[in-house]
């Protein structure tokens, strides 16, 4: 299992480095969205609830781009069959894809969060950063797990892009809710406040439950 996941991850990394299909698009999308928010809200700086909302909505939609592309190469270039022909544990595919998406999200955020601080955020980022990183990681796990499951569900449908959005957004509402509420006090205009533990706990619980569900039923999406 571990060897298989490693092989799949190496392949994902090679593919992304070669094609540069997902991460650059996600980064560009986030930055463009900040600009749109600037005009849409007619605000030069945001803080507190609003800042947290802007950040998470942007990251969520950027994540949707990555989810959309996640299984395209497998589907169109026979990656599924190639994988299914090998004597390996099929759940490895889920683990590898979720880690890939998690990695993509982290890389995107390394650029997109500072860009947010630069372009829109009122209070300084420095103070909020340690807490924010914790929230980002917790939310990324949730998005990666649900995103992978939804991407695999939607890849066989004809209206893939639409299906991904329609399926993933309701399922991710709790993640965004938890993440946004947990982030809001960090970005308060009076300086960063303590990280709210209850929202973070909700986020962690949701991550865990869906990781278990997805892990248990993912195999059924692979076989013919």
């Amino acid at each position: 299992m571990r060897g298989t996941v490693a092989a799949l991850l190496a392949k994902e990394l090679a593919l992304e480095l070669r094609t540069r299909e997902s991460v650059p698009a996600m980064v560009m999308f986030s930055i463009t969205t900040y600009v749109i928010f600037h005009f849409g809200l007619d605000a030069n700086t945001v803080d507190g609830d609003l800042a947290s909302g802007v950040l998470w909505v942007t990251l969520l939609f950027a994540a949707m781009l990555g989810v959309n592309r996640l299984f395209v190469a497998e589907h169109e270039q026979g990656g599924f069959d190639g994988f299914l022909l090998a004597p390996v544990d099929r759940t490895a595919m889920f683990v590898a894809k979720a880690i890939t998406l998690f990695g993509f999200l982290c890389v995107v955020e390394i650029v997109a969060v500072p860009a947010f601080a630069l372009l829109l955020l009122g209070p300084p980022l420095g103070q909020a950063l340690p807490g924010l990183i914790v929230v980002l990681l917790a939310a990324n796990i949730g998005i990666a797990v649900i995103g992978t499951l939804v991407a695999a569900l939607a890849i066989q449908t004809r209206a893939r892009d639409l299906m991904v959005a329609l399926l993933a957004l309701p399922l991710l509402v709790p993640v965004v809710l938890g993440a946004a509420r947990a982030t809001a006090p960090l970005l308060d205009h009076g300086g960063a406040q303590a990280l709210p533990g209850d929202w973070l706990a909700l986020l962690a619980l949701y991550d865990l439950l869906f990781a278990l569900i997805a892990y248990a039923i993912f195999d059924f999406l692979l076989e013919d």
Binding site: L167, P170, P174, L209, I213, I217, F220, L221
Partner: peptide, 17 residues
């Protein structure tokens, strides 16, 4: 099969929420 996977995921989502 895909509908069943959806039904399970969403069916778990309901009581959870």
């Amino acid at each position: 099969r895909y509908a069943s996977v959806f039904a399970i995921t969403a069916g778990a989502f309901v009581p959870l929420c």
